Simulated scan of single mutants.
Amino acid sequence: MKPQHGIAVVLLLGLVATAAAGGGIPTLPHQFSGDVTIGGSPAPAGTVITAKIGDTEYGSIRTTEAGKYGDPGQSVGDRLLVKATPDQAGETITFLVDGVAAKETGVFAVGGGTVLDLSVPGNGGTGNTGGTGNTGGSGGTGGTGSTGGTGGTSTTGNPGESAASTAAPEVQTGHASLATSAAGVVQRTVTVRTADETCAVAIREGTTARDGNGNPLDEVTVARADPAAVPAAPPGTGVAIILNCGPAGATFDPPVTLTYSLSGEEWAKVGGATPKVLWYNPVSKAWQDVPATVDPATRMVTAEVSHFSIYALAWTVPETTAALEAQQTNTSPGGTPPAGDEPPWLFIGIGAVLLIGAMIGGLVYLGKKN
């Protein structure tokens, strides 16, 4: 094999490996929140809730308020996120409360959102929480009362959830119809992803979705935009991905979840900086920050947005890097010199003409002298 052929093979293998490492469809996590009790009493703040499928852990959260975990009204980072894979949809999720298995279980759905109350027995059993135990008087401390409590709680756990909450949400590419009530309330969770499957927007059941005129929203679109076709990012800001979410002006209450999934190449381009999400405000004609959650392990950035617009996944370029790039641009061969540094071609031309004239005059003079 010729050396150049070997180099080509190595480059080809490198491209294939890079594509394999940088690919992948972003998987929206299943979000859980609700009340949590230990022995019938609110679990104290600092309790750790862990979600597992089989023997593998797929998410955990530490409570910040007694008796509650997660909060559907807050940002996505304040909920228990179960980050499984699409092929695990429909599998059972078990929950541990400070290492103790809860009576309730869930069913994994990509992009799902479920309010699920969790309970575990205390040191003295669960008789006090049982319906039969409280009715039976002494049942609260007896074994029968404990069994009755367990049965009452577990029977109303998962069956109490709506079918739409546990069913896999509808996933569309580029465009999706939205089923809403007359009041604009979304009837079924819908996820809309980009054509290259790297970014997605999840609109959950129960969200109030309206268009710019306040009417119930009946469709949504999500597409990657050409950076050259949108307003330039602020100085010192690098841009990896720009999304155009439509229709512009649509509003959501509570906010919908916007997810970016970076390839290995895009993540390397960020160069160690922390990615952030910006949205373009057409009124102020300026880019504004959006709170976001960054997961370096999966190269995913998640933000919650209450309206549709143009959203950019960006990062702040270090001043030294920006200055170096500007210097390289100004001094590179064939590059455009900075303003005010243009060579004085007119004076150089005049000087050359005078020099040539002087040389010719000198030659004529010497010829006449000889």
Rank of each mutant, 00 (worst) to 15 (best):
I38R: 01
I38Q: 01
I38D: 00
I38T: 05
G39T: 07
G39S: 10
G40Q: 07
G40C: 10
S41H: 12
A43V: 04
A43L: 10
A43P: 08
A43N: 09
P44S: 10
P44T: 11
A45V: 09
A45C: 08
A45G: 15
A45P: 10
G46R: 10
T47S: 14
T47D: 11
V48E: 13
V48G: 03
V48L: 14
V48H: 05
I49C: 05
I49E: 02
T50E: 15
A51K: 04
A51H: 05
A51R: 03
K52R: 14
I53S: 05
I53Q: 10
I53H: 06
G54Y: 11
G54D: 11
D55W: 03
T56P: 01
T56Q: 15
E57V: 13
Y58I: 03
Y58T: 01
G59Q: 00
S60Y: 05
I61E: 01
R62I: 09
R62E: 13
R62M: 10
R62Y: 00
R62H: 01
T63A: 05
T63S: 15
T63Y: 02
T64N: 11
E65Q: 14
E65R: 12
A66M: 03
G67K: 04
K68H: 13
D71P: 00
G73F: 04
Q74T: 09
S75I: 06
G77Q: 11
G77Y: 03
D78Q: 14
D78H: 11
R79Y: 00
L80K: 02
L81V: 01
V82T: 06
V82H: 02
V82K: 01
K83W: 07
A84G: 11
T85H: 10
T85M: 09
T85E: 11
T85V: 11
P86M: 07
P86E: 12
P86Q: 12
G90W: 10
E91G: 08
T92R: 15
I93S: 08
F95L: 12
L96C: 11
L96G: 06
D98K: 00
G99N: 05
A101Q: 15
A102N: 06
A102K: 00
T105N: 13
T105Q: 12
V107W: 06
F108N: 01
A109Y: 01
A109P: 02
G112Y: 05
G112N: 09
G113P: 00
G113Y: 04
D117C: 06
L118R: 04
L118I: 08
L118F: 09
L118Q: 06
S119E: 13
V120A: 13
V120E: 00
P121M: 03
P121E: 02
P121H: 01
G122F: 08
G122N: 13
G122W: 07
N123W: 06
N123T: 13
G124Y: 12
G124E: 15
G125I: 01
